[in-house]
Structures are given as structure tokens and as C-alpha cells.
Design a protein around this nucleic acid. Sequence first.
DNA 1: CTGAAAGCGCTAACAG
DNA 2: CTGTTAGCGCTTTCAG
Lengths: 358, 358
Amino acid sequence: MPRRATVIDVARRAEVSSATVSRVLNGHYPVARATRERVEAAVRELGYVVNAHARALAGTSSRTVGIIVHDVVDPFFAHIARGVERAASEAGRLCMVCCTHGDPRRELAFVDLLHEQRADAVVLVGGAHSDRAYAREVARRARDLHSGGARLVLCGRPSVGRDVPTLSVEYDNEGGAFALTDHLLTQGHERILYLGGPPDLSTTRDRLAGHRRALELRGVTPAPELVHTGAFSPAFGHRRLTELLASGLTFSAVFAANDMVAIGALQALEEAGLRVPDDVSLVGYDDVPAAQVLRPRLTTVHVPLEEMGRQAVRIAVPDAESDAESCAWQPPPEGGLKLGTHIVVRDSVAARQGRVTG
Amino acid sequence: MPRRATVIDVARRAEVSSATVSRVLNGHYPVARATRERVEAAVRELGYVVNAHARALAGTSSRTVGIIVHDVVDPFFAHIARGVERAASEAGRLCMVCCTHGDPRRELAFVDLLHEQRADAVVLVGGAHSDRAYAREVARRARDLHSGGARLVLCGRPSVGRDVPTLSVEYDNEGGAFALTDHLLTQGHERILYLGGPPDLSTTRDRLAGHRRALELRGVTPAPELVHTGAFSPAFGHRRLTELLASGLTFSAVFAANDMVAIGALQALEEAGLRVPDDVSLVGYDDVPAAQVLRPRLTTVHVPLEEMGRQAVRIAVPDAESDAESCAWQPPPEGGLKLGTHIVVRDSVAARQGRVTG
DNA sequence: CTGAAAGCGCTAACAG
DNA sequence: CTGTTAGCGCTTTCAG
């Protein structure tokens, strides 16, 4: 196998030094036009391709960012990933994506792997399990990363400690759940079934907190039998709601922990011969595209997913432009952004008709 | 900023040589138990993290694979990306994903970028535009990559030339379209509107070819006014079908070029007061999850998306296990896989009632 | 089992 | 404007 061409080969061929080759390759440095052309020709003739590793080793950054999600197919993560990829690309960086499938150990392992790659930023996406030991592990990595000049960005999850050097991009999760529940309450629903979401995930806790706050504000006592946490999947929504319906539980509305759960819930309702919103109202959360495809179209909470991804890299890495003077750039002093959410009213909620289904 | 720890620092601390540190870090080499433990302790105490770039430079591969898609959010690409990510991860590799948003120039630029990163494999996903110059560019990069020991994998697109060193994973696109059209024909539909898909994309050409072959085989003459190519989006499906309906075009079934187009088409039909499948039958292609969420549930062609992604990396890189003896591994002689597709019958097609809508 | 030393390919001073 | 010369941090012969 013929060894790959290197700067030296190009230099020899163009009859210049390797430094000159490097200079024309990088632009940003005066090189005589004739020389430049000779080098460019040599590059072309040799099919030379710089070695990003050698380049990274020699000082310049790796020009990559990493993102860690549960699953690239899940629209919640996919949209955030798109934002990260776009912003990274605009900042002249490659995006490495890792999928944990919800396993915290894989998550930690990926942070390490991305650190090894010397990613300029590592974006950790989605709710976190509330586990002290786990938070400590994340904190340690945040420090390691930081002391190496890289940033750990928490996207849609709480901080892991006051003086841990992380950046963060959150969204108003509690507020969205509050608004959504209030909307239901306003329509006369008081027995609202809360369905789905892993109970120990920060996302679930926040949504439930907003839900409860709204209930209490309207003088409705939260009923424990109306809270059924679980997974964030259509399968869970379908299965659990089917069971609940069979058990005779009564409620007039369902608050699905996210749109995926709502998809399954809607199917269960359909199968039970219940009409949405006539017999039961239904709401979701996240406002992924599927929410508009469902019939009835789903009332839900819009979360600026892609924007979160964009911001995550924006606050963590200097962009292409200011990049020339990259040393001038520095992370925003706040270090933490919180994006707004808002309820999107569509067709899956109706005023309560008096009857309570069960 | 305190310089990051290096093997030398670890070596010093553990009172061994850097070579020994390297050996314990990599496993695969006899090191006295006591020595190993001393090194491991030093690593921990210093918060040492290997530099993947230095490692890659020093000879071992970069342990990464790259994937180039139009858009990570589009389920077609997302599922393939998931397969690639999983297989890469299982083979101990990181996955770098790039989004072109359909721009061939970005695609080429990303191949270069991934080559610079010395990715072990670069997977190019999705239909390609049939453009000689473009194919030549791809071919050149395939050769460059190959001569550097990396592989270019074409996933769901045709070869760029007989003796261009690429690997490929295809699916039976033409066959699926044939089967689907035949299904419609069997149900009595003869005026079938073919809707969507960029006309110069290989994917579209293949699907249309299968569609036409089925038509001809049943003695139905393809009608040019029934073919309306365009984008692969719900927006296109909705807009164009709405126009067509207004124009008075007659047809009893719609063959949407993919499920996304079908989503838009269904909405247009609904808005026009037409019922699916009672008034008009509708089919899609790809069998993404949305196909099961639509009402009626969509009859479509199942494409083994995730499996394609998996296979793409499987044929291109040695897996973790055989990796120990990695020099023993070599790409499968075939170099080209073709996965099967099959039609999934759901609820969006009904036997033709006689009336032809328009 | 362990150490010494030679690069891997590139960039970045530092001199001209 | 261009060449020389050190490394960047790691792996890897080749010798003990």
C-alpha cells in the first residue's frame, strides 16, 4: 500500500519547505502567489490530504464537538442534534454523536471518549437521573475537560453542583407543564391522568412539579392514583393506558409526559372506543412533528429543541468568524441559558362534558 | 492553565518508562501486576486522559467512522444513522455525522473532511444526483480514501463506476415500487398519481422504474400527467396534491414517493373532503414510524434502514473482536450488499369503487 | 517484563 | 516572503 503523501512530499515536489506548504494550506499567512500556485498544484497532483490528527497534535484544536444523546431516532434528541450539528458546522467543526440508549454508564464512557478526542465541547443532552454518585462522576469529568480547555455543556438537565465548570442550556420545563395543566383545568378537567416518563429523571420531576403546582393553584388536590410514570415511549403509553382503562380508573384528560407517550395513549383510547377530545382530552409535550400528524392534532408544549442545540455549541466554542482571533473569545459569563416554552393549542382538548371516563 | 498530563507525567509518577505506561493503557501486552497497578494509580491521580490524536498519529487507526446524510431529523436518514452509530460503537469506534441538507458540494466537502480525520470508513447515504462530473468527484475521493486504507461506502445509491474502489449497501428499491404498484393495480386502480421525489435523484428513478414496470406488465400505459416529482417532504406532498386536485386531474390512488410525502398528501386529501381509502387510496415508501401513526395507517414499503447502516460499517471495518488480529480482517470480496424490501399492507388502500376522483 | 529512542505529520517560533 | 528547527503525545521496534 503506497504511503500517503505528507507535507514533506508536497514540499519536495513544489520545491519549497514544509513550512511554506503548511502556510498555503492554512491560508492566513502571506505567501507569494507563484509559490502558492506551485504548492497547490503539488497538492493536487499528489492527492494530498492533510492529517487532522497531526494538525490537532501540533497545537490547533481538534475542531470537533461531541454530542451525547439517548437515541438519534427519537425526535426530541434528533432535533437537538440537528441544532448542534448545524452550529458546529457553521463554526467549522465536525460533530461526533454518541448514543447511550439511556445507559448512564455509557454516557460517562462517551464523555471520556470525546475527551480523548479532544473535542472542543461535549454536549450532554436530556434529563439526568438524580443520583449523587453519578452527578459526582459527571462533575469530575467536567473539571477534567475544563482544565484541558474544553467545555461540558448540559443541555436540558440540571447542574451537577455549584462550582462545577459546566455551561448549560435549559428550557422552561416546569413552566410548560404548568401552562398545559392550567389549560386543562380551565377547560374544566380536574381528574387528569399523568402518564409516562421515568420517575427518577429530572425531566419527569420538572414536568410533574409544574403539573402539581397548577393543580394546587386551582385548589385541586393531586391524586396519587392519577400519576403513572414509566417510559417515554408510545409502547408504554399504549400499554399502561390500556391497563388503566380496564381497571376502571376515572379521569377526563390525559397529560402524556411527552408526545411519544401521547401517540401510544391515543391509540389505546381509540381501541377502547373513546373519542379524543369528545370523551377524553389528551395533551403531550415537546411538540415534535408527529404532534401535527396525529388526528386529532395534538395540543402540546413547544420546546425549542433545535435552538437548544445551536446555543449549546454557540456558548461553548468560538465561531468561525471570531475564530481568526480565537484567543479573544471566551465563554459567556452567565454560562447558563434558559429558553422559553409555550403551549400550542390544537385539537386534542375539549371542555369537559360532565362525564368522567374510566 | 495547567498543562494536561501526558504519558511522560504518568511515567514519572509511577516511576516507569513511557513505553510501559503505553503498554498498560493498551492492555494487550504483558506487564507485571505491581507495575500495572502503580501506573493505573498514577493515571487516576493525575486525571490523565490519552490523546486520541497522538495515538492516531503514532500509527493505530483513528477509530472513527463518518456518515454523511441530508438531515439527521429525517427518519429515513435517522434510522440509517442509528444503524451506523450502533455498529460503529460495537466495533469500538466513534461516529462523526455530517449533514448536507441535500447540497452535493457540501457532501464532497464532508468526504474530504472525514478523510482528513482519517476515518476508517466514510458512509455516503441516500440517493445521488445523476451527474457525470459529480460522480467523477466521488470516484476520485473513493480512490484517495482507498489508497489511504480507508473505505467509502455507498449506502442506498448506485455505484460511481466499475473499477472505483467503493463498498456498497443497497436495497431493492425498484422491486419495492413494483410490488406496491402491483398491489394497487390488483385492487383495481389504474390511474395512479405518482407524487414527489427529486426527479434527478437515483432513488426517484428507481422507484419510478419499478412503478412503470408494474404498470406495463399489467398492460396499463403510463400516463405522463400522472407523474409529479418534486421534493421528499410533507410540504411538497400537500401543496402539489392540493393544486392537482384543484386542477381537476383524475386518479383513484396516490403513490407517494416516500412516507413524508404521503403525510402531506393525506392532509391535502382530508382538506379536500376526500376520504382515504374510501375515495382515494394512498401508499407511501420507507415504512418509517409515522406510517403507523397516520390514520388510516399507511400501506407502504418496508426498507431495512437501520440494518443498512449496520451493514455499511460491518463490511467496511473490522469489528472489535476480530480487531485483536485486525490485520487478518479484510473487506468482503463482494463489496456490495443488496437488502430486500417488502410491502406492508395496512389501511390506506381499498379496492377501487368505480369512481375516479379529480 | 521494562527502557531507550525513533518517528507519525504538522505547526509555530525564530531566523533570515 | 521563506526556510530551519523544535516539539505536540503516543506507539513501537530494538535492546536489555
